[in-house]
Design a binder for these strands. Structure first.
Lengths: 94, 94
DNA sequence: ATAATTCATTGAAATATTTAAATGTTTTGT
DNA sequence: ACAAAACATTTAAATATTTCAATGAATTAT
């Protein structure tokens, strides 16, 4: 993974700065593999378009990766992006 | 450092999700020790109240720590908070 | 082919954030 | 004491984000 620049770190920070989006990530972690969209509609108390909006924030920064499976979509965590972000944060420290 | 919860991670993410605030952090890193408020007014092209606002976002999450020195204020990075945030991120990965 | 299911998009309202002018507070210099 | 310097606060405008109802698009089941 190439060195993440400040602009990208800013976007990832923004993607992580919402309770629903952190909840989505923890649900993905809980599943340990793939999380289906439908699971979120069942577990998060928001309308479907809202959850869809949050998933878009996470996918457009590649924090999570979508995969189509028939008429469902499943998501997995993109560890590489998290690691790149962590590297950026480490570099901020003195 | 106690385990950081999602609410705190959300606040830190939000504090990090702005170009000016990341710039402030990189200036503190550059100084390697203490950064004075005046240095920021000189290096960031925003009005003083705007920079003050961003410093507040960073101090209220304890990402940086302020110290009064006469009529100046100097800031240093709080590595413990960054580390706690990194731990939270590591725990998200599969 | 038709209906049902799953997810995406559009548009609009409510809320939050960013910015700066004006002003206030605290400390220093004379 | 008075003026200047450094940072904070208030207020308001501009912009961005969050939410959802309505609707659209793609896939599956009958």
């Amino acid at each position: 993974m190439p060195q993440m620049d400040a602009k990208q770190a800013e976007k990832i920070s923004k993607a992580l700065s919402d309770p629903t989006r952190l909840k989505i990530l923890s649900e993905i972690k809980k599943k340990n593999d793939w999380l289906y969209c439908v699971d979120l509609y069942a577990n998060i108390n928001l309308a479907q378009p809202s959850i869809c909006h949050h998933l878009k924030q996470l996918t457009k920064t590649s924090i999570i990766l979508p995969e189509k499976e028939g008429r469902n979509i499943k998501y997995t965590m993109n560890n590489a992006v998290i690691d790149g972000y962590i590297d950026f944060l480490q570099a901020l420290k003195k």
